[in-house]
């Protein structure tokens, strides 16, 4: 947190010196909301790791204005994001596109959950197999002992 700040201060001092310009907002609240949603998907390239909605660096302001102009002109969100993406590349997208290089990233939740479940199942099956290796009578007594120990 602290370090992040040090860094941001170095690069984009104006981010803390200003709060934005009222003229840049769209008069229609619905369109402004759409523009803001788009802005949160786009990275301010100068002040690393903030979206253009959260920064007042010069480039962030310019991109905010550009997004709003395009939204006001009736373009849909995907088209606006595509416009910026074509100019600044994957780096500008805070939600990385699914490519060969990001497959593993997007698969993480499924891999972690699936892997975890697989390990649990394997261990459980082995524990049950060990219990079953005893005679049914032994297993029952073991289970009873187990209950008694609790």
């Amino acid at each position: 947190m602290t370090r992040w700040l040090f860094f941001c201060l170095l690069l984009a001092l104006p981010a803390w010196a200003a709060v934005g310009d009222p003229n840049e907002r769209l008069p229609d609240p619905a369109k402004e909301a759409i523009a803001r949603e788009i802005g949160r998907e786009l990275r301010c390239l100068v002040c690393q790791n903030q979206s253009i909605e959260d920064s007042d660096a010069q480039l962030a302001r310019d991109l905010r204005r550009l997004v709003r102009e395009r939204v006001a002109a009736g373009e849909d969100s995907a088209a606006v994001i595509r416009f910026v993406h074509q100019r600044y590349g994957d780096f500008v997208l805070l939600r990385p596109p699914v490519t060969a290089a990001t497959m593993l990233l997007w698969a993480t939740p499924i891999l972690a959950l699936g892997g975890g479940i697989a390990v649990i199942m394997l261990r459980r099956r082995r524990a049950l197999a060990e219990a079953a290796a005893l005679s049914p009578e032994e297993a029952r007594r073991l289970a009873e002992l187990d209950r008694g120990a609790a």
């Binding site: 310019d62 991109l63 100019r87």
Partner: peptide, 13 residues
């Protein structure tokens, strides 16, 4: 002056 062409080039500073 408006910095619009710079955006088309992908200039970030």
């Amino acid at each position: 002056e408006p910095g619009r062409i710079a955006i088309d080039w992908g200039v970030y500073g």
